[in-house]
Amino acid sequence: MKIITKSKNIVLNVLIVGISTIFFTPGLVIFINSLKTKQEARILNLSLPEAIKVINYQEVIERGKLISSFLNSALYSIGGVILILCITTAGAYVLSRNKTKLNQFIYFFIVLGIAMPINYIALMKVMQFTNLINTRIGMIILYTGLNIPISLFIAYGFIGNIPRELDEAAILDGCSSIELFYKIIFPLLKPVIATLAVLNFMGIWNDFIMPLYYLNASSKWPMTLAVYNFFGMFQHEWNLVCADIVLTSIPVLIVYLLGQKYIVDGMVSGSVKG
């Protein structure tokens, strides 16, 4: 009996290592080839490079204009995250605490947006009308709008679990409603703020559709669109394309490894409460 369990466990461990390999290998192929010469990377395989060509990265950064697109990506993601956090936590707090008919309606009205398809042409009309098309601030506001529904949904669920007694005590102590929110409630929202920050950061960083439609100046492009363009131009230099893919992925991978707990918690709780 013991031997059977033991061999079963070995099979299970081997199996899962095999599965992880399937998920791991594509990234490894890209990484190894990003360090090769153009000739070596003519065919993508896992053979190690003769000499490690870190210079590929330097070349990509210069020819792909990665510094400016990195800064654009950072601006859109960080700006978007801050704006989303400010307005959705405050809104979710009021909607969750004071469940009047109107507030319930507002909640469902906004959460409906999770399933709504984006009508790009109609949105373009709106962007033109508000003079936000082809502007950086327009990108930030647009990303904020698109991410409000799911962020509200997650924050609303979390705030429901914070005891109301706190509010009453604070009001009795003479807090105004604004003080109550920023001094008492906001600090308690740290876990959900971390979750929202990480999820929204990754979502905005990874997007390439919005700039594809609403930014025509390449100086305002984020990294994703820059890498897509680069792929089209340098398709015969796999080493450079691979280096560009690695550079574009590194920021989200770092955020993922640091904030893994919040991502998984957020995605699970956000979905389970639905």
Binding site: A90, G91, N103, I106, I110, M116, I118, T144, G145, F181
Partner: peptide
């Protein structure tokens, strides 16, 4: 407190829809 998100959502998500 809800006006910020209501405003941006209405104009950039609901209205285009």
């Amino acid at each position: 407190f809800t006006f910020g998100m209501l405003f941006i959502y209405s104009i950039f998500v609901f209205l285009p829809g």
